[in-house]
Design a protein around this nucleic acid. Sequence first.
RNA 1: GCCGAAGUGGCGGAACUGGCAGACGCGGCGGACUCAAAAUCCGUUGUUCGCAAGGACUUGUGGGUUCGAUUCCCACCUUCGGCACCA
Length: 756
Amino acid sequence: MEYYRWTQWIFLRLFERGLAFQAKTPVNWCPTLGTVLANEEIIDGRSERGNHPVVRQPLRQWQLRITAYADRLADELEGLDWPETRQKQRDWIGKSEGAEVDFPLVNRSDSLRCFTTRPDTLFGATYMVIAPDHPLMSSICTVERADQVKAYAAAAARKSDLERTALGKEKTGVFTGAYATNPLTLSPIPVYTADYVLGAYGTGAIMAVPAHDERDFEFARKFELPIVEVVSPDGQLHEQLTEAFVSDGIAVRSGDFDGMPSAEMRVAIVERLEAKGIGVSKVNYRLRDWVFSRQRYWGEPIPIYFPVKAQGNPQEGGDFEIDYTHPIAVDDADLPLRLPELDDYLPGDPQGPLVKALKWRFFQRDGQWFARETNTMPQWAGSCWYYLRYLDPTNSSQLVSERAYDDWMPVDLYIGGGEHAVLHLLYARFWHKVLYDIGVVKHKEPFSKLIHQGTILGMAFRWYAVVGPEGQILRAIDGDDARVVKGDADGLLRLSDTGEVVEARWVLEGDVALRDGQPTHQELGVRLVGVAEKMSKSRGNVVNPDAIVEEFGADSLRLYEMFMGPLEQSKPWQTSAIQGVRRFLDRVHGLAMRDLSSEAMSDETARLVHRTIRKVGEDIEALHLNTAISSMMILSNHLVSIKSPPREAVERLVLCLSPFAPHIAEEIWSSLGYSASIAQLSWPEYDLRLCEDALVEMAVQVNGKVRGRVTIAKDAETKAVETAALADAGVQRFIGERSVKKTIYVPGKILNIIIE
RNA sequence: GCCGAAGUGGCGGAACUGGCAGACGCGGCGGACUCAAAAUCCGUUGUUCGCAAGGACUUGUGGGUUCGAUUCCCACCUUCGGCACCA
């Protein structure tokens, strides 16, 4: 509650600055969840959570004006140490520069404004398209067309995104009966409506230039509209275009602009339009404002209330009418605004379940009734700024103290799943920037370095079952049989030679037999192919970490997860492989229990110890945790082989291991006789001189192939190396009688002798 | 379709800045211990030709640059992730 007090506090700052506002807009209403979802939370027309259908429906909603920050959100990504996610966010924001152009409507005094990124193709605009939900729609369409247009618009509204995409890209649309004038050619052009134009983007209307836009080209073909080339690749005129030419070129059929290159013309045209007052240069974003209200109980209450006209006492069921046009902020001093107790907090009502809390919802002040907002905030709200509150969680007077902020911020390394690449990470950056603007934080960006950890996949082994018409298994074939192909029409797998239908079948790691080194089906004897996929119940390849901890221990699980491979990579879980890290931990433990020598380390051991310290330290910095562990394994293998391992070496190994396997390291440390925690110690130092060898074993190549090796001083002179190399029997054998043409010597690396 | 990432042994993976491909681990094989098994320990393990010494081949495919390419360049194939009528 102390936490969401500050979430509400931030909301009020957003509200004061006009960044939180109400709008009655078509939203993505999910009847099953009883709530509204952001575009980002919908995948193929279904909810990301639970996969329920979603419909478009107008509803009063709170929105956050993230679009006001679009430019900064895109530009300030520059300089962050982030992976590909930077580009993903830029794509999501989708900045596009162009112009808005007015097309006067024929027989009317007003015009239709459209957005285009290609003002240079304006002379080729042969028709216009407006979105089915365009506000001017009902007024511009002619009487005789009205029914058809209305039917089309209604059908488009019903279509979910899923249906729109499932129907392929076949263009549909109807003529509205209206005409507009191309402001440069002055010819009248028809105005169509089609759902390939989106009401929510740009102005909801486009000028269609079929010669230079693939979608317009397709539409023009279908409706037999004129296609006029105005940009030519070579400056020549072409009559019949077989496809849209979308690249830049040379202007043709464009009056006094003829001959101008596209880039230049874009500027010139906008200047002309601006001079005439019929156009303006304009930047648009794909990013939409963020629908921030949810119709659920479990969310921070939105600290806003509204005046009410009431007949009687609305707390006791009296009639009331809420004036949503006058939102009033709750005083900061009255925060947090808590959730009321509710018997039934299931969602369903489009205003949210809080409408049922009459005592909470309505209150009276100076004889006037007011009603609280019954929508609540989404889950994202709290996660937008938790990294700040973590620094100073008990502070009751400030969101975060300056001292705590300076001690910790910005976040040096943020490790999070790739699924948050555009949702959470964009929202959090937006809030951070607002907090920056009001002086709560001092950095423009919260997270300096970002890493997405890879998903751990479940491993399953495939074979193919040849199935008969009733689904019975006729016989089994190898999981890598090349004859298995996917049918184009039905998507079923078939054998390319016999045409029989086959199905992929799966067995788990534990049921795989090995024959001649090949994974094989225990009973059927067919070859299996290991396939790593996202863990899912249906495939049965889910691994429960609790069971792993139970069997191998928490340190083994940690260590194995780090040892599997690069942090950022998706990698398959192999329960058999965790045995390896468990063995390693057991060996280190066993090592420490042995009779340790207190004598100085041998030169060989000392070198390995110092090298390991360096390697592990560097690998931790670079987050190469797998190779850090492997170098500790090398050291432990070495120490195990010594009759009486030096105590000094073992202690340093345990110290290196402690961040990776803290529990067992602590345990070993205490059995080595120390009472203080190993976690309190600082990282061991290494001696650089011991990390480098004076002598190196160097490969000698003859014509690029390794034929021998010599042990020689690291920085030996070319002459000395050549002499040593030529003395090597293996090298001599390959040179024989032939003469040496040239030698290439890279000190410490290689000597390559080129012969005739 | 567009954008991004990645293809290395039976498997997970390693290889600094173009310099000995396969570290480390799993699995396999052989051995020790054991009545036996498990656990543990030792040896071995890319493919292939060869009795052997030794040779040839090998980092998705095909080209290129280079004395030398897993690494750089071009084209293609495959897999994974994201976006998908954004004018």
